[in-house]
């Protein structure tokens, strides 16, 4: 009895003195994420290796069937294409925004619009593009009236290239926003010092600017890639089942529009998560490198 109460008192004192241990503060967040993010994803991964009550690679192996392999390839290509093109154009836009002098209102307008375009929901974007480039679209009709060319015949929104075009609408501003800090971190003195040491603009770009910015560029491109790989709303609203993309396939499986093979649906998701996690893992490597220089 005495021992017990002494123990109690001691532990109470300990608690009082040190307050709650620190990890208790992280607990709610940890539990929240465990329940609503980690467990669902884990359940999914487990399911994809659990076929008919036993461990098996058969569901994952099914991903290699032509139709599904094609979906991965298409999604990969779409992401690669929009990341590359969006990356280059976004870089150009970031350069224009971050350097030199130009009208402030123009600068601010484009900056704030970049934030909106990279943050905006995919559904609104899809319908805005239908309103622009669809058969009845504003631009289509205007160009048809002016030149007699029906561009909706050549640019099908509900196709790979149409989707790529629409994706660029968020990829370019996203790249620009991601790259702005890196441009801001480029010191004017580096260029001036390089020039004084005999470097031309091109040499400066190749020897100094690009090597310094390279990790940020690579990291941003990987983010663009992952962003596009997981995009669902835009693709669904524009093309529905007319394109063979992994997110669309997953959507069909979830909503039960196609055969009900739980393990295979999970395998699709696992495949996608693996690709995206790989991209983001590479990104954090690049980011670590960038942080070393850009301070």
């Amino acid at each position: 009895m005495t021992l017990n109460s002494t123990l109690q008192r001691v532990s109470w004192r300990g608690l009082r003195q040190r307050g709650l241990p620190g990890w208790v503060g992280a607990l709610p967040l940890l539990m929240f994420l465990a329940l609503f993010l980690i467990l669902p994803i884990a359940a999914n991964v487990v399911t994809s290796f659990w076929v008919n009550g036993a461990f098996s690679f058969s569901a994952m192996a099914q991903l290699l069937e032509p139709q599904y392999l094609d979906a991965f390839i298409q999604t990969f290509n779409l992401s690669l294409l929009t990341a590359a093109v969006g990356g280059v154009l976004g870089l150009l836009l970031a350069w224009a925004l971050a350097t030199g002098r130009k009208p402030a209102w123009l600068q601010n307008l484009v900056l704030s619009f970049s934030a909106v375009a990279s943050q905006m929901g995919g559904v609104a974007l899809a319908f805005a593009f239908i309103a622009t480039l669809g058969v009845q679209g504003f631009a289509t009709q205007a160009i048809l009236g002016l030149t007699g060319w029906d561009l909706s015949q050549d640019i099908q929104l509900a196709s790979f290239s149409g989707l790529a075009l629409v994706y660029l609408y968020f990829q370019i501003p996203l790249m620009a926003i991601l790259m702005l800090p890196a441009f801001g971190a480029l010191k004017k003195q580096w260029q001036e010092a390089a020039n004084s040491l005999g470097a031309s603009r091109l040499r400066y770009l190749l020897d100094i600017a690009l090597p310094i910015m390279w990790p940020s560029i690579a990291g941003s491109l990987l983010l663009l890639f992952a962003n596009s790989f997981g995009a669902y709303a835009t693709a669904y609203a524009l093309a529905g089942g007319r394109v063979n993309l992994v997110p669309i396939l997953i959507g069909f499986f979830i909503s039960g529009d196609v055969m009900n093979d739980e393990s295979f649906a999970a395998a699709l998701v696992t495949g996608m998560v693996v690709v995206v996690v790989a991209a983001m893992g590479l990104r954090s490597l690049a980011e670590r490198k960038a942080n070393r220089w850009l301070r």
Binding site: Q189, W190, E192, A193, A194, S196, I208, W293
Partner: peptide, 15 residues
């Protein structure tokens, strides 16, 4: 011009 330049700070190539 054949000049050598030293600035107040931050002029070394960080990489």
């Amino acid at each position: 011009r054949g000049i050598g330049l030293v600035f107040q700070s931050y002029s070394l190539f960080p990489h």
